[in-house]
Design a binder for these strands. Sequence first.
DNA 1: ATGTTGATTGGCCGACCGGTCAATCATTAG
DNA 2: CTAATGATTGACCGGTCGGCCAATCAACAT
Lengths: 204, 204
Amino acid sequence: MDDSPKGTRDLSTRDTILAAAEKLFVERGFAATSVSRIAQEAKVTKSLIHHYFGSKEQLWHEVKNSRLIEYFEIQRRELAVTEPDVQCLMDAVTRYFNLFRDNPQLARLISWHIIESEKDAHGDERELTLLGIEKLRDGQKEGHLRSDVDPRYILISFFCLVTHWFQAKHEYLKWLGMDPKSAKADEDYLQALLKVFFEGVLPR
Amino acid sequence: MDDSPKGTRDLSTRDTILAAAEKLFVERGFAATSVSRIAQEAKVTKSLIHHYFGSKEQLWHEVKNSRLIEYFEIQRRELAVTEPDVQCLMDAVTRYFNLFRDNPQLARLISWHIIESEKDAHGDERELTLLGIEKLRDGQKEGHLRSDVDPRYILISFFCLVTHWFQAKHEYLKWLGMDPKSAKADEDYLQALLKVFFEGVLPR
DNA sequence: ATGTTGATTGGCCGACCGGTCAATCATTAG
DNA sequence: CTAATGATTGACCGGTCGGCCAATCAACAT
């Protein structure tokens, strides 16, 4: 039978709590979310949350880890089929961008993870990053990418261009007087991102 | 004489509180920081904080606004002396980058501001952004910048490249197994940023 | 039927939260 | 000297926090 470590066979209630917790944590962050509020959202008692997850911290880690591991898994698969030629890289960038576009909680989860900067090291992250850098290095060796920039910083600048857009677009679009919920903005920004990242803002 | 609205002539204590509040808010964000903790940090009583600032929210806004207004002012001055030619733009990018490098609280303050996404609109932000876009448009008209990318998204992608670096570098450097406190990393990233932003990652 | 096990509840705890208030202290003006 | 004013304190408020616990409930194995 199912022999999960703590003996929780019924997953539906547990998942209900997990979903409620994710919603609130993603919305307000760890500190601003109370266990009782999560209980209310999941329509269970506070005690039940402690029964399943032990503590608020553990629940938060459970929420984060489940999402992040899922995200790493997707990335790993994506990376495996990516060849270091230009078209393939542009497709990979687009898929990465769309992953965030289609999972808005992901960007916020990462935001909270980064800003609250906890010590938990994932290993997954590191492995995945090194894999990406290797791919970029291949691209450089084959002449698809310029070789006078450290591939580590190429990768980071790419992360910046995608991650920060989804973290802050509501703010920037507000500054520009544009509709913060417009799907058009995502599409337009992606096109600009591809041009800037691959070709730069100087005329060729 | 000094006739500040609430009649607080002694600024030193007030500033002590402000500094303590900034330190803790920047470190942990609004929700995770308690008034008593700020009082302890500033070595005053909790009551005194309410005496000077009314409420925790008002203190938070005071902290944020004072810093952000200062930052906007610097930016406005920078922008005024920036010509839209390539060398001048690269200098402006570098100065903008160094502003964040030398004021680490600024990036975190903006992080908290963005992720806790409050409704307060600064006006300053909008005006400044439009000014920057105008400058970029000039650069396009004079042929210094490519004209097939919306200057609004050029500006945003630039914000992403700088802001997110300072928000997340500790995380990324950890992934790469590099020293998160290294000043060298800032310098190296800036060089990479300039190359990528202006010329792109494709060979020329 | 009975005991076992885990799901679920409501009540309770001490700690801390943000905030108020009346009482002091220090300074200075009249 | 005294009145006034603001700075500063400590005690206190109601409320919420995260967490604990004993009791019940439902399902199932014996």
